[in-house]
Amino acid sequence: MTFISRRDLLKRAAAVGAAVDVARRLQPSVEGATEGSAAEGSAKAFALDDHAAMAAAREPLENLTATESDLLEAVVARLIPTDANGPGATEARAAHYIDRALGGALASSRQAYTAGLAALDTYSRSSRGKAFTELSTTDQDSVLIDVETGAATGFTGSSAAFFGLVLNHTHQGTFGDPYYGGNANFIGWDLIGYPGIRTMVTAADQQQLEKHALKPNHKSAYDYETFTKAGKNGH
């Protein structure tokens, strides 16, 4: 694999118009704001640090177009928001997971993303008067509720099917093994308190877990050399 410098990455991103609107994405969520200002403050501080690093490290897209990627990033940011409970799907790089998998294990969904994301944006413009990425988070949520309930028009079949597809893949990209490009920095596993991949869990380990004393080990399955590596894109 050819080494690509960070500068090249940024140039490529700019060339395809994929520059990330970091400032907009750093808006704390509406729900987060209602859950306590102290927590909100720390979440915001976290997001600023981490997000700057992520934006700089963004790799070229593998399957999605820049427009599709921006839309998908905006959607996953609402499904699992960055908020008082810490980082969400954005920082876990769930959209990056989906982009990569659409060239392999999720290739059969590629067309559904093309059609669904286009329909999402068209519906957003016709019903709310703005592109989805331009809407406030509150309005983005209301559009997504329409999509989730099948009320949004312009989709192939029910919009609910597309919503379910994206939600499932967002879970995979947030809570799956980091080997596949999501769950960056074990964000998803830390969120739900999963203590990590182990190849041996003794009775003593189980008792530690039951005393809340088993520390997360932050390992991927493929950090264990004993396993044959799965294809990163496919099976």
């Binding site: 729900e31 859950e35 609402r78 699992i80 908020d83 989730e148």
Partner: peptide
């Protein structure tokens, strides 16, 4: 709901 901040919490 099945997603969003309440779900995450």
């Amino acid at each position: 709901p099945g997603w969003g901040s309440q779900w995450k919490a």
